[in-house]
Computed example of a mutant assay.
Amino acid sequence: MSTFRVVRRMFCVAAETAAAPVAGSRWERLKKSKAGVWCRGLVTDYKEACREIFVGAWERPIKASVYGTLLGGALACFYTKPDQSSFEAALLDRSNELGLLSPWIRNATSDGHVQSLVKLRNEGRLRHISFGLLSLVYRADYDLAASLYEAQCSNLSVPWRELHQRVLDVGFVGFWWVLDSKMKDYDVNDDEFKHLPVYMQHTAAPSVQEVERSERLHKESWLPPAVEEEEAGTKVVDRKEEVMSEESQIKEEQTPA
């Protein structure tokens, strides 16, 4: 009986609450709710923070410029950070460039570095890791698809303290710096000149006068040899005159007095 009374009282209270008029519109009720109060407080905090940023930038322009430059540089580094696919594309391009050269004129440092990277790539041992502003490519001991216990056990993976010894390249602002530095003068074989004297192993850049002289001689080499023909014609005429003078002298000697 007491349970029936409690249930009836609950239904009566619910009916009275539903029938009672609610003061204010729906928007007013939403603003006075907990979610509305929280949203208003959040908007107020962000508004005050933005106002303080602009006021601080107006009062300290140099400091604001430095912070803006650092922030812009960080965003540029983040968006121009190369990924693993770009490293593989750069590696294949460098390998093709070396493949177009004869083995006798390839730089040993460039060729050895690229060949080692290609071998690691074919073995599936190249790994890529991103640090936000830059990327690193390092070598691993096993392929990801290897089913060996040493390759799958997380306790036997490469520790972080050995990562600096395994780093192969650094990607920053869209470039792979180690690969580009190794490919410098990739078409110059230093071992080809090691048997020469010391003063002939290193050559200085030509001066402006030497470059102009070489260009002038190159342009003159394409001109027709008109000067040589004139000299040859002059020599033929002189020879004919000498022959005619000799013949006249011989006739004079043979003519009786």
Rank of each mutant, 00 (worst) to 15 (best):
D111F: 07
E252K: 09
A232T: 06
W222L: 11
V243P: 00
A20T: 06
N189Q: 12
S2I: 03
S181R: 06
V37N: 01
R26M: 07
Y186S: 04
N107F: 05
C77E: 12
L223D: 11
T109A: 05
Y46G: 08
G132M: 02
A89V: 12
R29Q: 14
V13L: 09
E48W: 02
A14W: 01
K251I: 01
L217M: 10
L117G: 02
K219T: 12
V178M: 05
W38C: 00
M200N: 10
A57Q: 12
P256C: 02
A146V: 06
D191L: 08
N107W: 02
L91D: 05
R51Q: 07
A35W: 02
K251N: 03
S130F: 09
W176M: 01
E230Q: 10
W176G: 05
V22R: 10
E230M: 15
A226P: 01
L196A: 11
E52V: 09
A57L: 03
K184A: 04
A146I: 01
A226C: 10
N107A: 01
D169H: 05
K184P: 01
G72F: 11
W58H: 04
R5G: 05
V37K: 15
R26E: 11
E16F: 09
S181H: 10
G73W: 11
L101I: 06
R161V: 11
F4M: 07
G41R: 09
A226D: 14
P159A: 11
T255F: 02
V55H: 03
K219S: 08
F175R: 13
G72H: 05
Y46V: 14
R139W: 03
R161M: 10
S181K: 06
H195W: 04
R40V: 03
V43T: 13
A14P: 00
P224D: 12
T80M: 13
K32T: 05
C12N: 08
M200E: 15
K34I: 03
S85D: 09
K219V: 02
V22I: 12
E253H: 07
V173E: 09
S25T: 15
V118W: 02
R51M: 14
D187P: 00
A146C: 14
S154V: 08
S95T: 11
L75V: 15
R239W: 01
R213K: 13
P197V: 02
F78Q: 09
V66Y: 13
G56R: 07
V137Q: 04
A204H: 11
R166V: 00
L148Q: 09
S154G: 12
I105N: 14
S116V: 02
A49N: 07
P225T: 05
A35V: 10
R26C: 05
L42N: 01
F131L: 10
S154D: 11
S245F: 06
E231I: 15
